[in-house]
Simulated scan of single mutants.
Amino acid sequence: MASPDLELQGVVVARLKADATVSALISGRVYDQPPSPVTYPYFTIGETQFLRDDATCIKGGRVYLTMHAWSQAVGYPEAKSIADAVTDSLHQAPITLATNHLISISHRQTRVFRDADGLTSHAVIEFVAYVEKPTA
């Protein structure tokens, strides 16, 4: 049985690579760990956290998923455009998981800032997903 956060990560990566708007912005460069050297702009799956919240007859919880958009174009527009496209693709999306059951996935917040190198714009996009685990 797949862990909810790992299963969700795989489906999110596949969805973003297949999304025409996202692909037009990052050319399918969606990574868990980016290659070195990396071509900008690109997108990475970041930290996840699973908080169990079982009920009497239901196993499940919340998956907090953090993702990152990276750009070295001048200013913030490219990083913000990638973040917006990702949000449009995933917020309240009807995503099906193979093992677990996704109740909902919602965008929580996006932060955009300049990295310490002074060149790279960085968007941090956060989602929360409610997942039920199958009972055995």
Results as ranks from 00 to 15, higher is better:
Ala20Lys: 11
Ala20Gln: 12
Val22Met: 08
Ser23His: 07
Gly28Arg: 12
Arg29Met: 11
Tyr31His: 04
Asp32Cys: 03
Gln33Met: 10
Pro34Glu: 06
Pro35Phe: 07
Ser36Trp: 01
Val38Ser: 03
Val38Thr: 15
Val38Ile: 12
Tyr40Leu: 11
Tyr40Ala: 09
Phe43Thr: 01
Glu47Phe: 06
Phe50Trp: 14
Phe50Thr: 10
Asp54Glu: 06
Ala55Pro: 09
Ala55Trp: 12
Thr56Ala: 14
Cys57Gln: 12
Lys59Asp: 13
Lys59Glu: 10
Gly60His: 11
Val63Ser: 03
Val63Asp: 02
Val63Gly: 03
Thr66Trp: 04
His68Pro: 00
Ala73Asn: 08
Ala73Phe: 03
Ala73Pro: 05
Ala73Leu: 03
Val74Leu: 08
Gly75Val: 00
Tyr76Trp: 03
Pro77His: 08
Glu78Tyr: 02
Ala79Lys: 05
Lys80Ser: 04
Lys80Leu: 02
Lys80Pro: 01
Ala83Cys: 08
Asp84Cys: 01
Ala85Thr: 05
Val86Met: 01
Val86Gln: 01
Asp88Val: 06
Leu90Pro: 07
His91Leu: 08
Gln92Asp: 14
Pro94Asn: 14
Pro94Gly: 15
Thr96Glu: 11
Thr96Phe: 00
Leu97Asp: 11
Ala98Leu: 10
Ala98Phe: 04
Asn100Val: 05
Ile103Asn: 14
Ser106Gly: 12
Arg108Val: 15
Thr110Val: 05
Arg111Val: 04
Val112Met: 06
Phe113Thr: 11
Arg114Glu: 14
Arg114Ala: 14
Asp117Phe: 09
Asp117Arg: 06
Gly118Val: 05
Thr120Tyr: 00
Ile125Lys: 00
Phe127Glu: 02
Ala129Ile: 01
Tyr130Ala: 13
Val131Thr: 04
